[in-house]
Nucleic acid binder design. Sequence first.
DNA 1: CCGACGAATGGTAGCGCTACCAAGAAGGGC
DNA 2: GCCCTTCTTGGTAGCGCTACCATTCGTCGG
Lengths: 344, 344
Amino acid sequence: MALIKPRSRRGGGRPTIADVARKAGVGAITVSRALREPERVSQDLRRQIQAAVDELGYVPDPNARALASARAEVFGVLVPSLTNNVFAEVVRGIYDSLSDSPFRIQLGNTHYSGLEEERLLQVFGSQRPAALIVAGIDQTPSSRKLLENAGCPVVQVMETGPDPIDMMVGFSHLDGGRTATEHLIEVGYRRIGFIGARMDPRSQRRLAGYRAAMEKAGLFDPRLVTTTPVPSSVSLGRDLFRDALAKMPTLDGVFCNNDDIALGVLFECHRAAIGVPNTIGIVGFNDLDMMQVAFPSITSVRTHRYEIGRRAVAMALAAIAGDRPRERIVDLGFELQRRESTAR
Amino acid sequence: MALIKPRSRRGGGRPTIADVARKAGVGAITVSRALREPERVSQDLRRQIQAAVDELGYVPDPNARALASARAEVFGVLVPSLTNNVFAEVVRGIYDSLSDSPFRIQLGNTHYSGLEEERLLQVFGSQRPAALIVAGIDQTPSSRKLLENAGCPVVQVMETGPDPIDMMVGFSHLDGGRTATEHLIEVGYRRIGFIGARMDPRSQRRLAGYRAAMEKAGLFDPRLVTTTPVPSSVSLGRDLFRDALAKMPTLDGVFCNNDDIALGVLFECHRAAIGVPNTIGIVGFNDLDMMQVAFPSITSVRTHRYEIGRRAVAMALAAIAGDRPRERIVDLGFELQRRESTAR
DNA sequence: CCGACGAATGGTAGCGCTACCAAGAAGGGC
DNA sequence: GCCCTTCTTGGTAGCGCTACCATTCGTCGG
């Protein structure tokens, strides 16, 4: 008769579900159920099991759980940048909405690269996540395929477009760019430049909106556009504005790609003693808190980043729970905040 | 004779290691080894296995791997805020350093709450992460215990202190605060205020540094200190500065808790036509890019957030590989950047 | 030529949990 | 009283992978 010696615990002796079951005098599966679907276990056992859990300090092993159920309690989140305040806000919305749920978050940084996005989707997919949230709508064809076959809800965020992979929450960057530019035109600016850094697809669409508005007013001139693929920063805003002015000294307004750029422009105006809003009008994009504090305060297009994160999670959770939202595309819009920098 | 019908694949038919093994004509364990320790498998088999992997599109299941090896390829990262640029930079350093490794990252947001930190450590610990990186040195006693018993390398980041749980990368916030304040004194300011928002432990220590410098110079006056637990923002900087001036109209300098606050102060000076640096000197903390672009440019204490993230990962990876760094505490220091806002 | 030893490969037995099915107990309608 | 459903509980058999041995084969010193 062989004496079966259990292998010494690889895991370092943490209590398992079997320990809890023994202590509570029930089957392991009942413990499992008590933890996941308490309403299916009688009051009595539930209490007994909870007592055993507390006493042993039992915490379920998410890896074992994921393996057994072929589903990890993980939301995969892919963003192009971690330091860009815009995505940080979206991610914060996601975290806050998920903090009371059992879901963990796995964050990936694509660095604005389609290839990197593909690689990360491969990695994320291998875990069988509960949902995937990805920034933007410009996935490569193979990324799209990976997302379609992920076997979980997918939410594209930050932008809306015509052809969602699954669900979408965002707004139209083209409309945002157009609205900002129309405002400048309406207030009386004529030689309005576009200044943009990074120029990711969303920035491209803001530029397209700018261009549409300018052309409609018969004001477009390609020399008014100053862009660079270099990552955005306040100092880059200053530099690009200098370039734009050198190229086009008659400039009387700028629509900036984002608020950092706008702030750089404002500071350069101060330094060069260029009057804002009289000589130059400035419009930013995103409406960070500092826009309203700046002197003069800066007109900007307010976007709802945090809310986008929250909605994305809400939609994903609904889809997981089985009642997929009726509207697959949610447009959260934007609002132009008119301030001193264009008040003339 | 019973016909053993394999259960229909729960996982939706993705190829497993057994499929690869069959196709390559080897044992499953050899495939496992070829993937994890290629040098222990002969050239021939390695090639065969790689071909099978490619053909089937096999991707290892990290959950199964974690369960079998009692170790997940995950770095747990705990920060108090996701939108604060300071932590975003640290996290970016961590991501960039880990992007070529097999390690995934699980990020947790403690919202500056010790309780939340404990809860997250509990959750993170249950996965048996490969390493844990936590911000700050002020863990609660039970968080400390959780970290000590985590069974993996632990790196405390952002700050150095006397009693590391395991390893530490950061700098002395007290010294930073003192250096900033000494600079203001040296340049000739006398009624120097401290303006601080959030007032987390690191801010407290910057304040302590400020106080030490002021007391040493015989300049300290409690009415010079204006703080709030409210989260930091540029607009809050403006508001606090107004409060400070109302309380103490003879103020001639301010050391700000961080750069956002400093920017708010600068804008308010512009708006109220208070001369900088002549009437008021301003010093910030962290030296964000915009400090050098501001007009006037703002003196600030440069800290090495990105590098802190990188070093933390490097130390953790070394510890995982078995050669624990000799120095458990790495002080990356800081540098005072003298600029126009204190140039008088 | 033999035993020792290391390198390469494989088999077995789980890791901790849950899906699936079975079974007993408790009503409920005829 | 009997059958049928519903509610609770439990047993069994994996999920896909790796730790731990065992085995085979070649090499090398004596």
